[in-house]
Design a protein around this nucleic acid. Structure first.
Lengths: 216, 216
DNA sequence: ACCTGAACACCGTTCAAGT
DNA sequence: ACCTGAACACCGTTCAAGT
């Protein structure tokens, strides 16, 4: 089996740092960082555990390197739409999509307190659009940041909702017309499973309306 | 040392399940769940590791029990304010305060996908208020959930910002008047450290305005 | 019913030794 | 410069044995 790993990839003369990062990224994307063990990674690479240490130092540095890669991967975002408000919403939606593509890695970026840096590409676009909408100074900065936190908040919540066990007691048992202000449609809506994409659109649209709206 | 633990608490004849949970909750609140080890907990309780297993099964069940406790601890929330919008904002702020009080435990609730359940006490109040504001059916349910996700999103982001290392490159180096739409005040605001409480208030107010506002 | 120590299968990491 | 196996100090967990 020497020279060929479990995935049947090309033979390798030397193990490189890139090889280690590639394999680690693949495993993390599939099963999350928690189940990435140095021994398991070594097996995947068909090498000795200690070789990995030569290339990446230790487990924490390895994960840090993956986070750096993720940050580098998140490129610019081009706003689309006819009004600044629509363009802000479009940036938020694009960003959400990209983050949901790599939920584990986003969580790792978040854990390392680098959420702000992750948003830099989007931030430039958002700054431009809120300025375009007439916001200035601290008010513009607040608007940009409010959108950022909304996006990352939704992504974090959504990611964990996916793998949530059945809720006990289920929301369907909790809300009946009598407990929900005698509003049968409301009770039904509260009992129904949540549609994350729709909720996100509702939230970000309402937020942007509030931030850019005439009241401000 | 038998019969008196490291904190000098009262002697114990029998170790109880409650004793285990109390000690575990204290340690988790201080250092987070990651640094809670069964052996460390046993030392804290001045008992054998294996005794703990008799009372709580295993580490995962122990953490589950702490999460259950946290959920039970989050009580009702009384809305205050003269308009429905203000009362919704007040519920959100109170909720945020309570969650920030136990950040590690909230994160654990979240990891277990029980965020929805955590919100139940607040949900009743929110449902009442948005109904009061004239929202009905699915639209009311969306509004309630949008506020929920905003709150938990902010708490999660805020918690991790606290222990964030210095950002590289710092936002102060990134934003100058020329890059920030030639708006010196905006550049300064973007470079300044974020005030989480202020940003939260701005966000939730804008969101509620957008959700309850005349446009809808 | 409750507690114990020994033992097992894992972990990340270090290090001296190889080529 | 790169790789190796042995060894160390940790984990969570099981289990037979004690009282």
């Amino acid at each position: 089996m020497k020279g060929k790993d479990a995935k049947g990839e090309k033979a390798r003369t030397h193990l490189s740092r890139e090889d280690v990062l590639d394999a680690a990224a693949r495993l993390v994307k599939r099963d999350g960082p928690r189940s990435l063990t140095m021994r398991g990674l070594a097996a995947e690479l068909d090498t000795a555990v200690t070789s990995i240490y030569w290339h990446v130092g230790n487990r924490e540095s390895l994960l840090d390197a993956l986070v750096e890669r993720t940050l580098a991967d998140l490129g610019e975002i081009r706003p689309v739409g006819r009004t600044p408000a629509r363009r802000v919403v479009s940036v938020a939606r694009t960003l959400r999509r990209r983050l949901l593509d790599r939920p584990h890695l986003v969580a790792m970026v978040h854990e390392r307190g680098l959420t702000e840096r992750m948003f830099l590409p989007a931030q430039r676009s958002l700054v431009h659009e809120v300025h375009e909408a007439g916001l200035r100074g601290a008010r513009a900065a607040d608007a940009v940041r409010a959108v950022q936190v909304l996006v990352v908040g939704h992504v974090l919540v959504e990611r964990n909702r996916e793998r949530a066990p059945a809720q006990r007691p289920g929301e369907d048992e909790l809300w009946t017309a009598t407990t929900a202000e005698r509003d049968a449609a409301l009770a039904r809506a509260l009992a129904a499973p949540l549609d994350p994409e729709a909720l996100f659109t509702t939230s970000v649209t309402a937020l942007v309306t509030g931030l850019l709206g005439p009241g401000n």
